[in-house]
Computed example of a mutant assay.
Amino acid sequence: MKTFLPYAAPLLCAALLTACDSTPRERQEAVRNEVHELDTLASTAASKMRVAARRAARFDSASRARSRQPLDNAATKAFTQQLLGTYAAIDQLTVTTIEPAYTQLLRQTRTLRRQWTQRDWDYASAIYKQLNERLKAIRLDLPARSELRIRALQAEFVTMETSRDVKDLGGAVKQP
């Protein structure tokens, strides 16, 4: 610190002397210009935030309207067959078949998720919820090791779904 002080003192003096060379009116004008620039930046940022908030609200409104629409039973059955294959009879899953059903769901979700629309995610979520309901029914007979694996698969599914929601929301906010 002591070695820094001898070098800083001349710079500090030079800055003070330069400030002394300007008049109060000149300093007032400089401050006024800086405030104007800051005000313009703040106004621009606020305008962008209002536009983004409106777009996010529209996206949210459309998402809520979509989720209120009932899922088609035939499409749900077809989607269940596509995602679960031999485990499509969710109400018949047992302690030994519930974990492979979740594994199959995640395998198919990983493969197909990039091409899914939000409506496809609605169907996948409905299937996921049905699996979770079946898990609740048989959970007490499930070995802890299997339950732990299922919890990890559930976390991955929710992460993929949330990631898609965030991506779509980001796209909705950015689009003109």
Results as ranks from 00 to 15, higher is better:
A155D: 15
R32E: 06
E156I: 00
A172S: 15
A30M: 11
L112H: 06
S22L: 02
A53P: 00
T18G: 08
R113P: 01
I98S: 07
A144G: 00
V51W: 04
T80P: 00
V158Y: 00
P100V: 04
S63I: 01
S43A: 11
V158N: 12
R32T: 13
T44G: 04
E133M: 07
L11W: 14
R54K: 12
T162H: 12
L105D: 03
P6E: 06
I150V: 12
A172G: 02
A56I: 05
A78I: 08
A53L: 12
R68T: 02
L17M: 09
E133P: 00
T18Q: 09
K174Q: 07
Y7F: 13
L148Q: 08
R58D: 08
L16W: 13
A62I: 03
D60K: 09
E29F: 06
I98V: 15
L11C: 14
R149F: 10
R54P: 00
R55C: 04
T3P: 08
R119V: 10
D120F: 01
C20L: 15
D120E: 12
A172N: 07
T97Y: 02
V31P: 02
A65Q: 14
L83T: 04
Q69K: 10
R55N: 11
F4Y: 12
E156N: 02
A62L: 13
R114Q: 14
A126K: 08
T18Y: 06
R58H: 09
F157N: 09
P6L: 01
R54S: 14
R32C: 02
T162R: 13
T117P: 03
G171V: 03
T97K: 03
